[in-house]
Write a protein that binds this DNA or RNA. Structure first.
Lengths: 332, 332
DNA sequence: CTGAAAGCGCTTACAG
DNA sequence: CTGAAAGCGCTTACAG
């Protein structure tokens, strides 16, 4: 079946192709009777305008480019969930671009620009400031609106949606401190997520405010690796409380502790900073700071649509509320 | 900055735009010297051809459409991981289309077709045969190659990549039977994934071959719901072994059992049918059939590239090998 | 309200 | 090996 074009519709409806185009794009500008006639033909023929041709002619593709590092991260998938739901609502198509660690960032951004997307959503935060700088200037050169999704970049005034990880981590740390804990450890990952910097900052501030020494250490996100690490680690450290930037790391740590004979939360309180499904599948259930990742995706996409439609923007940086979900790995 | 076009390059290199085009698409057809000259200008200007214009002119977008139901499923994200890696290698862009439960399927497919993708990857398997039928005939009308990714559809001869879930589940069930287990339960979900049908079939066959009664039951994929369900369920059933279509369900069940005072695997062996990260974060670690989801994504994308390039295809249906990973929830 | 025509930025036979 | 020209399927001023 050759695809039906606007010419086929025009022919069958006995109007010009300009009229067919108007029926689709500016229906109010065409006489109701002809409009109905055209609409009928469109339906009969099952016509859908060729999105590529439309994109070329109108210079708008109603497509947003998602630039991300790693789909397999749980947070990425959740972010995508929110983005997809909103993009459907506003009729935007989604084009995916991944940026692996040793990819040429410049080339990736150029590719995105070459695809003529109307807007860009930048997921995650795995770039160093200098790389981020480069990305943003390339995007701004191309005059494409961009929103950072679950990443904050303070140096430049780039629209962003996230949560206040610093305050969130401060709060949970403070809670632990108020219970009298002193040796509170924060486990972060080797890779340098900007979000983790904020978490570390919040934790560090809470500890210092209380006159305690911050105990930040890095471990692997890989369970088998960090398990070995923890087995050694707990031998040499007296850990009264443990906060992990990722839930899976908290669970992995807890498993090691329990197998070593410790009781959770009696001997050590454990907290995750995400609230993923891992938190309710662990035994005991993990207390978490709840990060509304789906919402971050949804709100950032919504914000981007505003930019693409040149609507008035109230706030170009938005911080979504977080909350602490007390479960079984903390006391009281 | 106005984007540089092929005219700019042609002007700067003092050649016609046809030559510039050839340098990009058929470099062997142009004189090495002029080619170098043009390449130099392209580099200087940072030129990237407008993908939309190219798509319209050549009728090829080097874009594949991914049709999927739910990003948030762990399997979907892993599938995407494999797909993305291969699509990068072969220089295809990716366009995402989600199909929620009450979406108009026909419209979704039409939208995909309207986007002029060169090929379609159909993820998952949440459609009923009649819906699947409709999708496939729409796609075939449009003459777009399609590959089913982690889904099998036997009625029609549609290319597909997956694993032999029936045999895999047969094997693991048989293993349990050979250990003398009789009351072996299979937990599946409410939603009717075709993949689950295969799992049920394999399990049922193994049970029947051994003269045992198949004990299939449905539960929720939601942890808080299935936890309540299991708490009741274990009171009224003598469960010697438990197989779950999803790892998270197996872990959830195991947590309920352990909290109720049972020992795993001594009192009951537990098996998951995926091998996700849940399996190594549970305590004890979950024995699993390992489904190479990333590979399924990668292989299906590779297969699709062959169709798009009209290469010779040996096998249009491929079943990837699986294996059983013995961990701590089974004995011996 | 409607149509004829130019143009979006490319590719691709067709001549030469 | 290279260029002039038509065409991909639309949108959008511009007349009327």
């Amino acid at each position: 079946m050759a695809n039906t074009t606007i010419y086929d519709v025009a022919g069958a409806a006995k109007v010009s192709l300009a009229t067919v185009s108007r029926v689709m794009n500016n229906p109010e500008k065409v006489n109701p009777e002809t409009r109905e006639k055209v609409l009928k033909v469109i339906k009969e023929l099952g016509y859908r305008p060729n999105a590529i041709a439309r994109g070329l002619a109108s210079r708008k593709t109603t497509t947003v480019g998602i630039v991300m590092a790693d789909v397999s991260r749980a947070a990425t998938a959740q972010l995508l969930g929110g983005i997809i739901d909103i993009s459907k609502k506003y009729d935007y198509a989604i084009k995916l671009f991944s940026m692996a660690e040793n990819d040429d960032i410049k080339e990736t951004i150029r590719a995105v620009v070459a695809e003529q997307v109307d807007g860009i959503l930048f997921l995650n935060d795995e770039l160093e400031p200098s790389q981020m700088e480069m990305c943003m200037s390339l995007i701004q050169d191309a005059q494409i609106p961009v929103v950072l999704c679950n990443a904050m970049y303070d140096e430049k005034d780039i629209p962003a949606v996230g949560i206040d990880y610093e305050n969130a981590t401060y709060d949970i740390t403070k809670e632990l401190i108020d219970k009298g804990k002193k040796n509170i450890y924060l486990a972060t990952t080797v890779r340098r997520y900007s979000v983790n910097f904020h978490k570390i900052a919040g934790y560090t501030k809470a500890m210092q405010d209380a006159g305690l020494e911050p105990l930040v250490f890095r471990t692997s996100g890989d369970v088998s690796i960090n398990t070995l690490h923890f087995q050694e680690f707990i031998k040499h450290n007296n850990i009264e409380a443990f906060i992990a930037v990722r839930d899976s790391i908290a669970v992995s740590f807890m498993n090691v502790m329990i197998k070593a004979g410790y009781k959770i939360p009696e001997d050590c309180e454990v907290v995750g900073l995400q609230n993923t499904k891992y938190a309710i599948l662990s035994r005991p259930n993990l207390t978490c700071v709840d990060t509304p990742v789906y919402d971050i995706g949804a709100v950032s996409m919504r914000l981007l649509t505003k930019f693409m439609k040149h609507e008035d923007i109230q706030e170009s940086k938005v911080l979504l509320p977080y909350r602490i979900v007390e479960r079984e790995t903390t006391k009281e």
